[in-house]
Amino acid sequence: MFSYILRRIGVTIPLIFLGLTLTFFIIRLAPGDPTTKYINPDFDPEVKALMLKKFGLDKPLHVQYWRWITQFVQGDFGVSFDRSQPVVDVIKYAVGNTMILAALALLVSLLTGVILGILSAIKQYSRFDNAMTISSLFFYSMPSFWLGLMLILIFALLLHWLPAGGMVSINYDYLSSAGQFWDRVVHIILPVFVLGIASAASTMRYMRGSMLEIIRQDFIRTARAKGVSERWVMLKHATRNAILPVVTLFGLSIPFLVSGSVITEIVFAWPGMGRATINAIFARDYPVVIATTAIAFTMVMIGNLVADILYAVVDPRVKYD
């Protein structure tokens, strides 16, 4: 098992480098440069040249690449052109904010998805199952920006129950620590719901399907025949086997913990990675684009690895040598 993990990591690292090198050159193919957006009759071409020089973009591309790669292996992501500060400072807040939101959303979606999926399968074709099928289809098909805006209209504009966006309210700094905690809670409810609900719906469908397949198998009948209680059959025998596809889903969701969700972050004014990435792309802020890509890349690799390891944990038949 250990040597398997080592081997996987050995393959992963060159892959990440290859990916980053590609990103480095591909983003340069995009038209314009970091100064193109300052289009204004007062903005002189000489100023443009000065700015490009300041960013180190006046040198040939291979020189820039070499400079970037030597810095990168030393853990230096460079300076953001657009935010005028080290890339690490731009990203560190964004990663934290995205992780809180995405982790909660993932938790909500897994818990509700798995539980409701099991219940639906047990009571197949019941009124509950039908209601779940319809609502999961509804939430799954709903574009998240629309769902987000509707929830804002209902809960913020009409009912005044929840804030329309942001992570904390204006008076956050003047609140007691309990007040600050609660302030964070009310701000995160809607984005977690929007982000979690679509994947909860799909998790539920996976869980239901997989569960239905399992409970028709012989070993379940055997378990029942030997007198194991129905609850125990479902929890111990069926669920443990039915959860395998969900583990894959979980592994694939890990990158999303740090890559962020652009739409939800924009609609709810959540300062996370999705927004940082998209802003950087539009501003041609090359160092930030590469850094966010690097993180996303690494997380995809880790996610796949974790999923493979989890297989071995939940399924005794899977072994890695």
Partner: peptide, 20 residues
């Protein structure tokens, strides 16, 4: 004076209406 950053125009308008 507090400057709130809200990247979506519709949300900005909603916040103006809700008094946020």
């Amino acid at each position: 004076i507090v400057f709130r950053i809200v990247p979506d125009r519709t949300t900005l308008l909603t916040q103006l209406k809700t008094g946020e």
